[in-house]
Design a protein around this nucleic acid. Structure first.
Length: 646
RNA sequence: GCCAACAUAGCUCAGCUGGUAGAGCAGCUGAUUUGUAAUCAGCCGGUCGGGGGUUCGAGUCCCUCUGUUGGCUCCA
């Protein structure tokens, strides 16, 4: 007999060789129907594999991430089977489960596949799923495996097998389809009740752009049709929040073919909003001891040879600009740091000057591959809320703390509640890759980890993800519908101080090398605004939104009263406009709601006589009557609350 | 850059297998003077992304360029 410990800590005894499926059946028939896989100790396995010794066991269902993964991985096999039946002779790459569904990379040979083919593949998958095909695991020797795919003529699988050790190779067969696969899989295909293929895309074999591009088909499956429908609704919701759509509707920004792809044009409302963000950050930074600087948009090629960027990115950048007479070469600046290093070098520095914090909303230009461009999130010209802190190695910790304060403060003001952090450190097994002394790296890495610990930040460490010039800390936010975005960053840099020969005189009257910290709380204004739009679905925080109020006179008779109200509100620093159109109030309200203006003030005879406004809040409705001062206080209190340094 | 799809009025879209462009909204004009999510009527508006080809005839078929979208690769 063996002891099986279940998640509720209860222990059950069974004959050795029992399967998780049998145990599920022993617990309840209902559970058995829902079991997709099993977690045996810490490994996820097929629910049909026998257990021979004492283990901890969790039975995984659709409610478990690992259960979903098994289902989706099995769905990838099911799709492959359907495709193999419909398009004989295709060759298969890899087909894993992903966060939302699965994909399979397939070489269709000369046959071009498109989304038009999806319905027939989906139908075939459902048909096969109904056959309740089991996933049968089989251990095979390397030569058997090579023999099978050799006969099939699938060079991709052969390449994969060649990278595996003999003895660790398993095949899974379901219905007419056999695949090289580590598993685990669901017991049979019956839980796959709803299938949706999402998109086709090209994907390089093994992610290598020099190798053949396979056709990747993405899909997702569910145990209930209803869940698929809900998922599609969620996708619709994400679509409605798309910053490219809202950017156009709310007149925030646009693009022009004439100006060039990836070069955003900020419209008045968008520019005003962005300016407000910048002013806010500037104010916070001023309080925290930053100095604002301004540098030009181009820099001599020599600057980038010194910084090393020329050697690294020269060929993949925009081509240099040449002066007509001297033939001198200049590059559009791809980052601000080299310019800032030269500002540092303009004067000698004492240790007493440090830390020196140099901030600039610097617009930079980077050549991005055309296929990479996307709305405001990936562009060729953008403005970083950049700053460089020049400090001693001992000051790193304190400076990190200061930057984190700023980041928290602004995320808070913008209603990003769910913030997580990635700390990227050196690959401990590969220290030669990095510039800078071992001692300095250790000091910086320790400082970053300590800061995260002392502040109790939700941080995780990634080894080997540091830049070659220093460790970094990246800030991720989760938006209102649960998507993760990478925003701010803080990076330690030992490289540029070296390359630009930055020094300060220490208390020992000797020259020392400062450390540089790059930091950008928003990252780029463009990307940040995009994320903000999607996060708040265009309903910006009151302090930031282009128009805070719109005054809706009931008829032209009340136009002058509306103007009086607007002028009074201006005195309280409240931004607004009047909808003086010859339209019915219902229409004006509707239009104001669509423009997502936070407050609507309806004024007619009653209000004019009493010197009041009738307040309607966006998305909520009638709030009753306020006098002007009372309303101004309502607005200003709300703004103060949002901007309070919590 | 690569794979695939798409590109028709300012916006959202219709236009079957090729016969010479249509709706709603927006805009303009007029009527209406309006009380919490669309008042009515009329008018204006497109060399169907650019170029080339097939055809008696191309928005529709083919090639090519540009751009957009979804991925891949990349991201100082």
């Amino acid at each position: 007999m063996i002891n099986i410990t279940l998640p509720d800590k209860s222990v059950k005894q069974y004959e050795a060789g029992i399967t998780p499926m049998d145990i599920a059946r022993d617990i309840s028939e209902g559970l058995a129907r829902n079991v997709l896989a099993a977690k045996v100790n810490s490994e996820v396995k097929d629910a049909t594999l026998p257990i021979e010794e004492d283990v901890k066991l969790s039975l995984l269902t659709w409610n478990d991430t690992d259960g979903k993964a098994a289902m989706w991985h099995s769905s990838a096999h099911l799709m492959a089977e359907a495709i193999e039946l419909l398009y004989p002779g295709v060759k298969f790459g890899i087909g894993p489960d992903i966060e939302n569904g699965f994909y399979y990379d397939i070489d269709f040979g000369d046959h071009a596949i498109s989304e038009k083919d999806f319905p027939k593949i989906e139908q075939k998958m459902l048909e096969l799923a109904r056959e309740k095909q089991t996933f049968d695991r089989k251990e095979v020797s390397k030569s058997e495996a090579l023999d099978y795919f050799g006969k099939k003529g699938d060079e991709y699988k052969i390449e994969l097998i060649n990278d595996l050790e003999d003895g660790e190779i398993t095949f899974y067969s379901s219905g007419y389809f056999t695949d090289l696969c580590r598993g685990p899989h669901i017991p049979d295909t019956s839980p796959i009740k709803a299938v949706k293929l999402m998109k086709v895309a090209g994907a390089y074999w093994r992610g290598d752009e020099n190798r053949k591009q396979l056709t990747r088909i993405y899909g997702i499956t569910f145990p209930k049709k209803k869940e698929l429908d809900e998922y599609l609704v969620l996708l619709e919701e994400a679509k409605k929040r798309d910053h490219r759509l809202l950017g156009k509707e709310l007149e925030l920004f646009t693009f022009s073919q004439q100006v060039g792809q990836g070069l955003p044009l900020w419209l008045p409302k968008g520019a005003e909003l962005r300016e407000r963000l910048e002013q806010y950050l500037k104010r916070v930074q001023k309080e925290k001891g930053y100095d604002q600087v301004i540098t030009p948009h181009i820099g001599n090629v020599k600057l980038y040879k010194t910084s090393g960027h020329y050697q690294k990115y020269g060929e993949e950048s925009f081509r240099p600009i040449k002066t007509p007479v001297e033939g001198e070469e200049f590059f559009l600046k791809p980052m601000n740091c080299p310019h800032h290093c030269e500002i540092y070098n303009a004067f000698p520095h004492s240790y007493k000057d440090l830390p020196l914090r140099m901030a600039e909303f610097g617009t930079v230009y980077r050549y991005e591959q055309s296929g990479e461009l996307h709305g405001l999130t990936r562009v060729r010209g953008f403005t970083q809320d950049d700053a460089h802190i020049f400090c001693t190695p001992d000051q790193i910790k304190e400076e990190f703390n200061g930057v984190i304060d700023i980041i928290h403060q602004i995320f808070n003001a913008l209603d990003f509640k769910d913030v997580s952090i990635q700390i990227s450190l050196r690959d401990p097994d590969n220290k030669e890759k990095y510039i800078g002394s071992d001692e300095n790296w250790e000091k910086a890495e320790r400082a970053i980890i300590e800061v995260a610990e002392e502040r109790g930040l939700d941080a995780h460490i990634e080894y080997g993800e540091a830049a070659f010039y220093g460790p970094k800390m990246d800030f991720m936010v989760k938006d209102a519908i649960g998507r993760k975005w990478q925003l701010g960053t803080i990076q330690v840099d030992y490289n540029l101080p070296e390359r630009f020969d930055l020094t300060y005189i220490g208390s020992d009257n000797e020259k020392h090398r400062p450390v540089m910290i790059h930091r950008a709380p928003f990252g780029s204004m463009e990307r940040f605004v995009a994320v903000l739009i999607e996060h708040c679905a265009g309903n910006f925080p009151l302090w930031l939104t282009p128009d805070q109020v719109i005054i809706l006179p009931i008829s032209e008779k009340y136009q002058s009263y509306a103007e009086n109200v607007l002028n009074l509100l201006k005195k309280y620093e409240i931004r607004g406009l009047i909808d003086g159109r010859n339209e019915k109030t219902g229409r004006k309200i509707r239009d104001a709601e669509m423009k997502k203006i936070p407050y609507m003030l309806i004024v007619g005879e009653k209000e004019e006589n009493e010197g009041t406004v009738s307040v309607r809040k966006h998305g909520e409705g009638d709030m009753g009557t306020y006098d002007i001062e009372g309303f101004a206080k309502l607005i200003n209190d709300e703004v103060a609350e949002l901007l309070a340094d919590k």
